[in-house]
Simulated assay, not measured.
Amino acid sequence: MNWLLVIAGAMVGAPLRYLTDRAVQSRHDTVFPWGTFAVNVTGCLILGLLTGAAARGAAGSHLQLLLGTGLCGALTTYSTFSYETLRLTETGAGLYAAANVVGSVTAGLGAAFAGVSVAQALWS
């Protein structure tokens, strides 16, 4: 049964990732991968909210599988982040590559911490 929850979440997360990435990237005329950045930070925020809710007893294991493992697992993408950073470096856009690494890690961690904090405030 658990694997069905993961599949269901991934069935939403994967197309959401693709569509969001394309929509965000089409609005920017730059080599910086804004679409991947947006989905990764959003996934960190969702996972932070879910983690904070679970810590307060407001989210059970089924919701964690559905949203955390399934949705966020398919929505976020470390491999594309890595590939795009490498591609930026190879094409001479080293400053964009460095900004992608620093910005993604900083914003992702910030979003996760913010999500946990919001969830803990809501379910305290």
Results as ranks from 00 to 15, higher is better:
90 E>P: 00
1 M>C: 06
63 L>I: 12
25 Q>L: 10
115 G>N: 10
38 A>S: 12
34 W>L: 15
80 T>I: 12
36 T>H: 02
104 S>K: 08
43 G>M: 12
96 Y>I: 00
34 W>N: 10
40 N>K: 03
101 V>P: 05
56 R>A: 00
76 T>V: 06
13 G>I: 15
93 A>R: 13
41 V>F: 15
118 V>P: 14
124 S>C: 08
73 G>S: 09
52 G>N: 04
36 T>V: 14
1 M>V: 12
4 L>A: 04
21 D>M: 11
21 D>Q: 07
96 Y>G: 00
34 W>C: 15
105 V>R: 00
77 T>Y: 08
7 I>S: 03
10 A>V: 12
9 G>D: 05
32 F>H: 09
78 Y>E: 03
25 Q>V: 13
85 T>K: 09
96 Y>A: 04
90 E>Y: 06
108 G>Q: 09
48 G>S: 01
108 G>A: 13
46 I>A: 13
105 V>W: 06
28 H>L: 07
25 Q>I: 08
122 L>F: 11
117 S>C: 05
64 Q>N: 08
31 V>W: 03
65 L>D: 07
52 G>L: 12
71 L>R: 07
16 L>I: 13
89 T>P: 00
62 H>S: 14
76 T>E: 05
122 L>E: 01
86 L>Q: 04
10 A>C: 10
11 M>H: 00
5 L>R: 08
108 G>E: 01
72 C>V: 15
52 G>T: 13
59 A>L: 09
43 G>S: 06
110 G>N: 10
55 A>M: 00
93 A>M: 03
48 G>P: 13
1 M>H: 09
33 P>D: 08
124 S>G: 15
54 A>L: 14
74 A>D: 09
11 M>N: 00
122 L>V: 09
101 V>F: 12
115 G>V: 15
62 H>P: 05
61 S>Y: 13
46 I>N: 02
53 A>C: 05
107 A>N: 04
103 G>Y: 08
50 L>D: 02
18 Y>E: 03
107 A>M: 14
33 P>S: 04
118 V>E: 08
35 G>H: 05
116 V>F: 08
9 G>I: 13
38 A>V: 15
33 P>G: 12
116 V>N: 03
68 G>K: 12
